[in-house]
């Protein structure tokens, strides 16, 4: 498929997002919730990178930070080597053409008071497309691309089913021709049969438009199906990162193993002997232990103990701490 590692399109460097808690005018409390504490990630051109983890692990906060919807506490986000954060960063308008987002809930992600055409045409107008015919052509084109008809543009969101709404959400994300699509649980609110259609659509679009995906998900079946690389997040940190086949065939970190083992899988009834994470847990690299070792509920307010991502096989990293 590809020759060598692709050059990073997007790079997240040591991202931290902290939220002050209980900080009101009267009571100044210094407690901070560490939603994201030290995330490093790269996204290659044409790649699909998935961030998996459970609610509260910081995967959505990371996504919002990339989209510019959440101010990072510290760290840097670079697009083609150029920083997106801080005063030197691009304007809102420039940024809009870099990355766009597809949201989880198709019922809340479309403005109920605007027709589909208006939702799609307004960003074009904002970004300088002036002539009416140009706008109409572009809207019709994008509707066809996501599997809808141009005449659907005249309708309001409530006239569509969940799957169709998600198609409209994808159309809106693509209308400005962005380089990166941030997929936030793109199919988890949809019925199983519709999920397949949306996944197929996303994969087709990725190929046709040479898009790069960052997908946030807790559905490991979807993640395995779509991803090139997978990052497993656990309480603000990446605990395992690697190519999809390494993560699913050879899960190494205790948390990844737990996550994979707990997915209810219809295949276990047919092959009760084939327990994916049952094989002997691989030992941590010499002189190290996995971090964190205990995957219960850690303290989200504490400063995490020092640890690093160690490469256990090419491109496959696991978070460890010195033994």
């Amino acid at each position: 498929m590809r020759d060598g590692p692709p050059a990073p399109l997007l790079e997240i460097r040591d991202l931290h997002v902290h939220f002050p808690v209980g900080n009101t005018l009267l009571a100044r409390n210094k407690r901070v919730l560490r939603a994201v504490s030290g995330v490093d990630l790269t996204l290659g051109e044409g790649e699909c990178l998935s961030i998996v983890g459970e609610s509260g692990c910081g995967k959505s906060t990371t996504a919002l930070a990339v989209m510019g919807l959440q101010e990072p506490t510290s760290g840097d986000i670079l697009f083609e080597g150029r920083s997106l954060t801080g005063a030197a960063g691009p304007s809102r308008m420039e940024r809009a053409r870099i990355a766009q987002m597809v949201f989880q809930d198709p019922y809340a992600s479309l403005n109920p008071r605007q027709t589909v055409h208006r939702s799609l045409a307004a960003p074009l107008r904002l970004h300088g497309t002036r002539t009416r015919s140009e706008i109409d052509d572009r809207v019709a084109d994008i509707l066809l691309k996501v599997g809808l008809l141009p005449e659907h543009g005249a309708r309001f969101p409530h006239e569509f089913s969940g799957g169709q709404r998600q198609r409209i959400g994808i159309a809106r994300a693509l209308i400005l021709d962005p380089r990166i699509l941030m997929l936030d649980e793109p199919v988890s609110a949809l019925d199983v049969s519709v999920r397949a259609q949306i996944i197929n659509l996303l994969l087709d679009l990725q190929e046709d438009l040479s898009l790069s995906f960052v997908m946030i998900s807790h559905d490991l079946g979807v993640v395995e199906h779509m991803s090139d690389r997978v990052a497993v997040m656990y309480f603000g940190q990446i605990v395992e990162l690697g190519p999809w086949d390494a993560i699913f065939a050879n899960p190494t970190h205790p948390y990844t193993r737990k996550l994979i083992a707990t997915i209810p899988d219809p295949d276990t009834i047919l092959h009760p002997d084939r327990d994916r994470a049952a094989g002997a847990a691989p030992p941590p690299p010499a002189g190290h232990r996995f971090h964190p070792e205990d995957v219960g509920r850690p303290d989200v307010y504490a400063v995490p103990a020092p640890s690093e991502l160690l490469e256990v096989s090419p491109g496959h990293f696991v978070r460890c701490a010195p033994a």
Partner: peptide
Amino acid sequence: ALPRLGSRHGEAGRQRL
């Protein structure tokens, strides 16, 4: 229609559902 864990094999495995 269900993308199931362990159903993808190799690079060619990203087939349509």
